[in-house]
Simulated assay, not measured.
Amino acid sequence: MSLPNPSTFIAEGASAAVYRLDGGRVLKLFHEGVDAGIVAREHATAQAIQATGLPVPRVFRRAEAGGRQGIIYSEIEGPNLLHHIVRHPHRIGWAMGAMAALQRAIHGHDLPALRSRKAILAEDIEMAPIGDRLRAAAIDRLDQLIEGDRLSHGDLHPANLIVSGDGLAVIDWSKAARSAPAADVVRSEMLMRFGPGQSAGMLEGMLRDATTAYYVGRYRKLAGTGKAGLAAASAAGAGRGLCRLSDRCVAPRRTAAAGRLMSLVDGGGRFVPRRCRPADAVPRSSKRRAQHRSCRYSDIETGQRAAR
Rank of each mutant, 00 (worst) to 15 (best):
Ala17Asp: 07
Ala17Trp: 03
Asp22Phe: 13
Gly23Lys: 09
Gly24Trp: 04
Gly24Phe: 05
Arg25Ala: 14
Leu29Phe: 01
Gly33Thr: 13
Asp35Met: 02
Ala44Leu: 13
Thr45Met: 07
Thr45Arg: 05
Val56Ser: 03
Phe60Asp: 11
Arg62Thr: 06
Ser74Trp: 03
Glu75Asp: 12
Ile76His: 04
Pro79Lys: 03
Asn80Gly: 00
Leu81His: 02
Ile85Pro: 00
Val86Met: 10
Pro89Phe: 01
His90Asn: 11
His90Cys: 07
Ala95Ser: 03
Met96Tyr: 00
Ala101Val: 01
Ile106Gln: 05
Asp110Ser: 13
Leu114Met: 05
Arg117Trp: 13
Ala119Asn: 08
Leu121His: 08
Glu123Ser: 07
Glu126Ala: 15
Ile139Ser: 08
Glu147Met: 00
Asp149Thr: 13
Arg150Val: 00
His153Met: 00
Gly154Met: 00
Ala159Ser: 09
Ile162Lys: 01
Ala169Asn: 04
Val170Lys: 00
Lys175Cys: 10
Arg178Leu: 04
Ser188Trp: 03
Met192Gln: 07
Met192Phe: 01
Ala200Thr: 06
Gly201Asp: 13
Leu203Gln: 13
Gly205Glu: 08
Ala210Cys: 10
Tyr214Asn: 11
Leu222Ala: 10
Gly226Ala: 08
Ala231Val: 13
Ala232Val: 11
Ala238Met: 15
Arg240Ile: 14
Leu245Met: 13
Ala251Arg: 09
Pro252Gly: 09
Thr255Asn: 12
Ala256Cys: 10
Ala258Asn: 05
Pro283Gly: 09
Ser285Thr: 15
Ser285Asn: 10
His292Ala: 15
Cys295Asn: 05
Thr302Gly: 12
Gly303Asn: 10
Ala306Glu: 11
